[in-house]
Structures are given as C-alpha cells and as structure tokens.
Design a protein around this nucleic acid. Sequence first.
DNA 1: GTATGTGCAAACTTTTTGCACTTCG
DNA 2: CGAAGTGCAAAAAGTTTGCACATAC
Lengths: 139, 139
Amino acid sequence: MQIQGIQKILREKGLKVTPQRVAILGALHEMHNHPTAEMIIEHIRETYPNIAMGTVYNILETFVRHGIVNKVNTDEDAMHYDGVTSMHHHLYSPETGQIEDYMDEQLNKMLTDYFQEKNITNFEIEKISLQIKGKFINN
Amino acid sequence: MQIQGIQKILREKGLKVTPQRVAILGALHEMHNHPTAEMIIEHIRETYPNIAMGTVYNILETFVRHGIVNKVNTDEDAMHYDGVTSMHHHLYSPETGQIEDYMDEQLNKMLTDYFQEKNITNFEIEKISLQIKGKFINN
DNA sequence: GTATGTGCAAACTTTTTGCACTTCG
DNA sequence: CGAAGTGCAAAAAGTTTGCACATAC
C-alpha cells in the first residue's frame, strides 16, 4: 500500500496524520509476520531512527481502539499486532512462536452461518477467530 | 474433583505430588473463571498462606508443558489459565476482560470434520479453538 | 492558536531466574 | 539418599504514565 492509502485510513478515522503513525501502520501492512511492538520499532528505525517506545505503544493502542489494527494473542508475554482486519484465522506454533495467517472464505462462511443460526442469547458477537495450534512442517 | 483425583492426574504425568501442585490444580478445577497467576495465589492463600509467586509460575508452566492446563490468550498483559483441556471455545469481552467457556459439541464436530477434510499441507494441527469476541449482555 | 501527539525517563506490572534449602518417592 | 521441587529476592521483560515540548489542522 502506498503512503496515500495509509494517510486515507487515518483521516477516515479522524486521526491526525503524523509521520510516526504513517510509519507504524505502513510497517504493519508490509511486515505480515504479526510483529510485536519491539519488532515494529526495529523495522522502522532505518527510516525513523528516533521514535520512542512509549509512542509506539500509544499509537498501537489507538489503532486497536479504532479498529484499524488487531491484537494477536499468543502464549507469549509480548503482544503481537496484525494490520489485516478482515476475517481470518491463525496457524500458531507455541514452540517456535511462528504465526501465519490462515485465510479461508469457505470456513468464514461456515462459521458466520453457524453463529447466525445459533444465536447465543447473552452475548453479542463482534468478531470470530480461530487459533489453530500445532507445528509447521519442514519450514 | 476430590484431592485423590488431582493426585492421580499428577502421578499419571510422572509429576511429583506436592501440596503446592495439588492446591494450584485444585484451584483451577474449582475456579472456572480462567484465573491469572495472581488470582490463583489469592484463591489458595486462605489454605496455603506462604506459597511463592515464582513457584506458582513454575508450576503453571509445568502443567502447560504436560498438557493438564492450558493458557488462555487475551488482549490483556497477564496470562489466564484454564483447567479444562477438552475441546472448547471462549466468549471474551475485551472491555470487561470477562471470559466464559463456550462448549458446543456440534461446533466441535463441524470444525474437526472440516479440517480433517481440508488437510492443510504444511501444518500439523494439535488443537483448534475459537475466540468469540464481543459483549456480554445484561450480566 | 489549540487540541492532539510525541519524546523521554521513570514507574509499574508481569514473569523469569539463581541459589540455598526442603521434600517426595 | 538423590533427584526434583520450593521460597525468596533480585532481575528481566513488557507496558504504561506524566510532563514538557512539538506539530497537525
């Protein structure tokens, strides 16, 4: 995605367009490996050497609040982040920490239909995602 | 579950039966609210006043390694733990932090069948679980 | 110009670690 | 008795916060 696309996303949410925000959201869209805050900083430090830790955490939290970034929960301490907000799932290996997107429209439809019909009474569903735990093979 | 049942679980895994382990596994089986390490300590402190933090973390890690306890990943910092190891899912509200079990045999079968047929090539599945994010209603 | 955002460092929270002592089998 | 487990306290890792300064709009 070009920088204009990033800026548009921010403006549409009423967020001020700052170089830090553009860099972080850009990084999340390039990286595709569900980085931690630490990994994001490392990635953007080349083009943005003096960004502050606290700023990165603040910005990520803002993005999550506005729904343009999602948290990816794992068994590890550090939080991982995901720039892809459309419905998808994750393959996850607790041993190596590797996380891969698992996109599957057929599965999405199956789950959406299932819960539409099921209609859980005391809960309003906002988002459904599968965590598929296991091992990556020869990789 | 009585104390004998807890001891049996530990012995079957080749783990030494210590009062600390019995207390923690017992707590996890009573609690049903996916407690953090902190919450577990608070819960067992009545009957076990001088258990050490480090011991609780060590024991939980041992249990997870032996598959008798699972980690429950959320958007929060602190890890949550679950004494139920059979296939099930979670309703989760990021706003309040509340986590509830969602048990559904029909869903389990649907998912298991789906992935059996699908056969992802580069990944060996060990465990599938849905995180259903949203809001609990009047509760 | 003003509300909002950022840098920085300190503080806080959660988890891990090292080592002496203890306990289970 | 010996291997494994525990207590404790210090340290590490991850995240949040407060405040002065800077910037987007």
